[in-house]
Amino acid sequence: MSDRQSVAILGGGMAGAAAARKLAEAGLTAQVFDKGRAVGGRMATRRHDGLQFDHGAQFMRAHGPAFAAQLADWERRGVVAPWAGGGRRVGMPDMKAPVRDLLAGLPVASAVTVTRIRRTGAVWQVETAPDAVHGPFDAVAITFPAPQVIALLDGSGFALSGIARASYAPCWSLMIATDAAVAEALVEPRTDPIGLIAGDSSKPGRPGGNRLTVHATEEWSRRHLEEPHDAIIAALLPAAEHHLGIALKPTYAAAHRWRYAQVECSLGMPCLYDPALRLGAGGDWCLGARIEAAYDSGSALAAALLADLGAPA
């Protein structure tokens, strides 16, 4: 390509990272904007005084060939490793590692909040808080959770048909450090209030100690969404002890609320793209509640952009 075209990628989770990598490999400039202090989105890791918790997505699995090939490549290079059987893979040394790998060497602006996108003629600008303007860009790809995509588009005077059909369930996440030894790597009661208990310290490449991440069920999280963190800890801790059959007596406990944790209703299509505007959106909300779905959607969004911009997909 004689003129290097540029795309603004809004969101630095798996979908945004997959899109950015494929655009960059085709010779475009992919500028990523992410509100987090570090990329990864819901593939998140919390650190506190030497402790480490994967308090978002716990693992990834492949159902289709594209993500299976990507996982195999990551495993060969030590970016992911097997955990808890059943084809599960986790990032090394944390769940953000695959996203960091996809974005390695690409321009990423972290800890920035996108407030508006605007189009002037055939190019785009991206506005971030408090008052910065970035661009011009030839196209914009938004990979936020669907409700946040809608909010940004509404505030910017644009729309992409169909996004409102996507919906999410929330999740309360409890992080526990304990002196008690927990043998199980993964327990999935899926009975209120506990959906999942993961042994963070059982994952490869993690620090020593005994650490657990507990995810509440979707319905329990929805009913208790606005309760204070202390109340969530007080409710989930004894429930986790019941399922594990031991007293945890935590040395550290913290809760985190995910408003948009897991896709409940997806669009059933790979991505959304308007060639007249050169504006697209994608994420797990397009295809389903899996990291693989986010990867596939971001890849499809990149392919749509490359076809429109005249670059090889």
Rank of each mutant, 00 (worst) to 15 (best):
H256M: 01
A313I: 10
A44N: 14
A231F: 02
L237K: 06
G87M: 07
R165Q: 15
G310D: 09
E241H: 06
L212N: 10
R211M: 11
M60R: 00
G162H: 03
D200W: 00
G91R: 07
K203I: 14
A62V: 07
I142G: 01
I150L: 09
H243M: 04
R21I: 03
E184F: 10
F144L: 15
Q31H: 09
G245A: 14
H242N: 14
V126L: 01
L196R: 15
S299I: 01
H243C: 10
S161H: 05
R223T: 09
I291G: 05
F33P: 02
M95Y: 02
I176G: 00
G283V: 09
G205W: 09
H242Q: 15
Y260M: 13
A72F: 01
A307F: 05
G40F: 04
A68K: 03
L23R: 08
G280P: 00
E226G: 02
A169E: 13
A139Q: 07
D3C: 08
A139S: 04
G121D: 00
D274K: 03
K22G: 03
H63T: 14
H215G: 04
L309I: 11
G162R: 07
R222G: 15
Q70G: 03
I291L: 14
L244Y: 11
T217E: 13
S167H: 10
A180Y: 11
M95D: 10
M1N: 11
G205S: 06
D34Q: 02
C271V: 07
A129F: 08
V99N: 09
A169M: 13
I232A: 05
E227A: 08
A111M: 01
A57C: 10
I9K: 05
R278T: 08
R61N: 06
R278S: 12
A146S: 12
T178P: 09
G288C: 11
A122M: 02
T213N: 11
G78R: 08
L236Q: 04
W83Q: 08
V112I: 06
D73P: 00
V32Q: 00
Y273H: 04
A302Q: 10
A122C: 06
P238K: 05
R278V: 08
G195F: 13
S161R: 11
A44K: 12
A8P: 03
Q5E: 11
D131G: 07
A84C: 09
R21G: 08
S156P: 02
A68T: 06
A164I: 03
T45N: 09
Q148W: 03
G56F: 08
R206L: 12
Q148V: 10
E184G: 00
R61L: 12
A97R: 12
A84W: 09
R206D: 06
A44C: 04
F158S: 03
H243F: 14
L225C: 02
P82M: 12
Q58M: 15
L306Y: 08
R42H: 13
V39W: 01
H55T: 01
G195C: 10
W285N: 13
G12P: 07
D3L: 15
L237P: 03
P204E: 11
H48S: 11
A111L: 08
L272N: 04
P136A: 05
D3P: 00
V32R: 00
A38P: 02
E127F: 01
E127N: 02
V133R: 10
I9L: 06
A72C: 07
P170G: 12
L236H: 10
A20R: 03
W83N: 07
L279V: 04
D230Y: 02
